[in-house]
């Protein structure tokens, strides 16, 4: 059985990617099970989807904890525990990651010798935060790594899953998927199916009997305002608004009143973003009349915020 997990953020098309790969497998004559996994749905939240494919009916169910292939569309998820990217990652699995970094860098960062393959970030897109058709690219690459899903099954699956989207979007997805499929020629068929756990030789679960703890400890309570001391907005923000003060014309009322979270303070007539409470909704970016607010990927935000603050100090 093939067991595959896609990781991305809400809005990056991981559910659709899972469905396209599932349908492509199905078109190739496989039994298939695919499912997305998310909590309370919102854009930018870590989500994953998974696909099982086998030549015989599938009785396994639920989250894949022993994947053969892990696909990561957004490399900022790797160090977020809740995203669960690393779950079941061992020497058997292949990790395909959409990243600017090299495979060696990732091996080094994760202290592992596992097979990491980088799907290079599409450099023709001016805004590094945009990942157009990343889902399709991930599926195209995955199909080649698996080696059992051909181009026509892939294209048919894209048509099937995106039939409501119109010919232009379908074509763009097909192009991007086939481009990634081509790109991965060197790694064709590198994913191996792992055997299911065997009753003859298995790792005994380390069960424990939870003991009574007083309700002051054991009640599921979060104290107001302290969900997280360091990150007041949790992991909401994936894009960070940065004000270029050289361009800002101090029409402070526009951005500060547009902000749905009251996260733009006004100092005299200068708007200052409160990054502790900004959720990265980008409403201010859209509203700003002189286009002085830009959207920077969160991973690169620290240095940009510093620059912006220096500008302000001058």
């Amino acid at each position: 059985m093939y067991r595959i997990r896609f990781h991305g953020r809400g809005g990056q098309g991981m559910k659709t990617a899972g469905r396209i790969l599932g349908t492509a497998f199905f078109n190739e004559g496989y039994e298939v099970q695919d499912a997305p996994r998310y909590g309370a749905e919102r854009r930018g939240a870590p989500i994953f989807s998974y696909v099982r494919a086998d030549k015989k009916p599938i009785d396994e169910r639920g989250i894949i904890t022993n994947p053969d292939l892990i696909i990561v569309a957004d490399d900022s998820l790797v160090n977020i525990p809740a995203a669960g990217v690393m779950q079941g990652l061992n020497e058997h699995a292949v990790l395909l990651i959409n990243s600017r970094e090299t495979a060696e860098t990732w091996q080094n960062r994760l202290g592992t010798k596992i097979n990491i393959i980088v799907l290079p970030v599409n450099s023709s897109v001016p805004n590094p935060a945009e990942m157009p058709f990343i889902g399709a690219a991930c599926v195209g690459a995955a199909a080649r790594l698996l080696g059992v899903v051909g181009q026509s099954a892939l294209v048919d699956a894209i048509h099937e899953e995106l039939q409501d989207q119109g010919p232009d979007i379908i074509k763009a997805n097909c192009d991007r998927a086939l481009e990634a499929f081509e790109y991965m020629a060197l790694y064709e068929n590198c994913v191996q199916q792992r055997q299911a756990a065997s009753a003859l030789d298995y790792q005994q679960p380390e069960w424990i009997r939870p003991v009574f703890e007083k309700a002051r400890i054991a009640a599921p309570t979060i104290h107001a305002g302290l969900t997280s001391v360091q990150v007041k907005t949790g992991l909401w923000r994936t894009l960070c608004p940065i004000i270029e003060y050289d361009r800002c014309n101090r029409c402070w009322w526009i951005c500060s009143s547009a902000c749905p979270h009251n996260a733009i303070n006004v100092d005299g007539s200068t708007p200052v973003i409160d990054y502790d409470h900004c959720v990265g909704c980008m409403v201010c970016v859209a509203q700003c009349p002189p286009h002085a607010i830009s959207a920077i990927p969160e991973a690169e935000a620290d240095s940009e915020i510093k620059k912006s603050m220096q500008q302000l100090a001058h």
Partner: peptide, 27 residues
Amino acid sequence: PRLLYTVDELRQIHKLQAIAHVERAIL
């Protein structure tokens, strides 16, 4: 009768409780 629950899962809960404890102290 047994709840299917592992040492690792309990460790995770204790980790969260430790964080909650620190936050409560700050509060």
